[in-house]
């Protein structure tokens, strides 16, 4: 079901989110809300700290927006790191130590819950690995490789991915084209020996091709993409309404 690769191909590189691991039809903003709800529950249940989940949600979004604006300004080819995002979100919410760690754990827990392995693709990759090809993953994400490895190990045990390259680790993104040369250097292979597979037309196809890799476009079904866009619009409207009303339920952090 996937394109055959030429004999000269030694390495299969693949994107992670929406390629190896499928996200559901929820938009990022909705995912952050679920994360915020889980974090608030745990903070309340385990530490007696009552923080409105909307506050956690809004703070996380605000921090991420400003972080990406800063990186885009000073190093448009680089990426933000998850540890920094969580550290700043925790600072703004007045959380330290174990309480701050809950923000991080909630995020990974929700990722695990909302991701599904792309089994047909994983089976094809396993076959390629059996044929002697090296399988690696390349992701534009603020997560470090170890986190992606943890998600893969949990959701797709026995997966054939040997090494994971993330834009946060390399400080180089696929969408800017900077990740691919770094990946080739690290792997010690020529571009024409690598096939890259992914769902993003710019990052995985255009930029991979520009770097000399053979690129394969693996697109999610149209209905998923439409539902996700609709969810993003709904979340945005909700955010605007909350802003417009100028209040948050339980405005302010009530630390107990």
């Amino acid at each position: 079901m996937f394109a055959s690769v030429s004999d000269t191909t030694t390495t299969i590189s693949c994107d992670v989110f929406d390629t190896l691991l499928h996200r559901d039809d929820r938009a990022e903003s909705s995912r952050f809300r679920t994360i915020a709800e889980l974090a608030s529950q745990r903070l309340s249940g385990e530490h007696g700290v009552a923080i409105n989940p909307r506050l956690v949600w809004r703070t996380r979004i605000c921090v991420q927006q400003q972080a990406y604006r800063a990186v885009e300004l000073a190093n448009p080819k680089g990426d933000v790191r998850f540890t920094d995002l969580v550290a700043v979100t925790a600072t703004m919410l007045g959380l330290e130590g174990r309480r701050a760690a809950i923000l991080c754990e909630a995020e990974i827990a929700v990722e695990r819950r909302q991701l599904r392995p792309n089994r047909p693709f994983l089976a094809w990759l396993a076959e390629q690995a059996r044929m002697g090809r090296r399988v690696i993953a390349a992701s534009d994400t603020y997560h470090e490789g170890a986190t992606i490895a943890h998600l893969l190990d949990t959701l797709a045990p026995g997966h054939p991915v040997a090494t994971i390259y993330t834009s946060a680790d390399l400080n180089a993104t696929k969408r800017s084209g900077a990740l691919f040369p770094a990946l080739l250097r690290a792997e010690g292979v020529r571009a024409d020996q690598v096939v890259h597979v992914g769902d993003d037309a710019l990052a995985d196809v255009e930029m991979a091709s520009a770097a000399g890799l053979k690129a394969l476009h693996l697109v999610r079904p149209r209905h998923i993409r439409i539902r996700r866009k609709a969810d993003a619009v709904r979340a945005r409207l909700e955010q605007l309404l909350v802003h417009r009303n100028g209040f948050l339920a339980g405005r302010g952090v009530a630390l107990t």
Partner: peptide, 12 residues
């Protein structure tokens, strides 16, 4: 706050 966040995430 936005200035602080911009600087906090400013590379190097």
């Amino acid at each position: 706050l936005r200035l602080w966040l911009s600087l906090r995430f400013f590379p190097e």
